[in-house]
């Protein structure tokens, strides 16, 4: 599936809920399915700055596709990074660089998009894209 198709799928899933509580509960559920980062990668260097809670992300190239693993010490943040990993993992670095993130608005998480918001959703997106740029340079 392309990033766009995965994002549409996530938007469809979230559209089934009518209130914030159900959306948050679902986000927490999604956090449980996050492909977890190996402990040896939970280093200071892999922490995303700008988050009130800790978020670690690791990226590696498998057959020209970028695969992300992550974790967080906060449950809601873990749900947010899980949604991003689901949307961007197993894609080519170029596709990740080109992807937009409007779907965050559509699943009712717009409030988390503000750059000043303490959870650092913006920092997370930036970090995933930075990995993509780095690996794309390697591929060229």
């Amino acid at each position: 599936m392309t990033i766009q198709e995965i994002q549409n799928e996530i938007v469809d899933e979230f559209s089934m809920f009518d209130d914030w509580m159900q959306r948050y509960e679902y986000m927490i559920e999604l956090g449980k399915s996050l492909p977890l980062i190996e402990d040896r990668y939970k280093t200071q260097a892999n922490i995303i700055k700008g988050c009130q809670s800790k978020v670690w992300v690791h990226a590696e190239l498998q057959d020209d596709k970028l695969v992300f693993t992550a974790d967080s010490d906060a449950i809601i943040t873990k749900g947010i990074i899980a949604i991003l990993v689901r949307a961007f993992s197993n894609q080519s670095p170029q596709a990740i660089i080109d992807a937009d993130t409007k779907f965050i608005d559509e699943i009712g998480l717009k409030e988390h998009l503000s750059p000043t918001r303490a959870n650092g959703l913006v920092s997370m997106i930036k970090q995933l894209k930075l990995y993509a740029v780095a690996y794309q340079t390697q591929l060229n």
């Binding site: 914030w20 948050y24 009130q52 809670s53 010490d73 906060a74 449950i75 809601i76 943040t77 959870n119």
Partner: peptide, 13 residues
């Protein structure tokens, strides 16, 4: 066992 950030996010709602 719960991160303060999670608690703050829910009560804000």
């Amino acid at each position: 066992g719960i991160h303060p950030y999670d608690v703050g996010s829910i009560v804000d709602k």
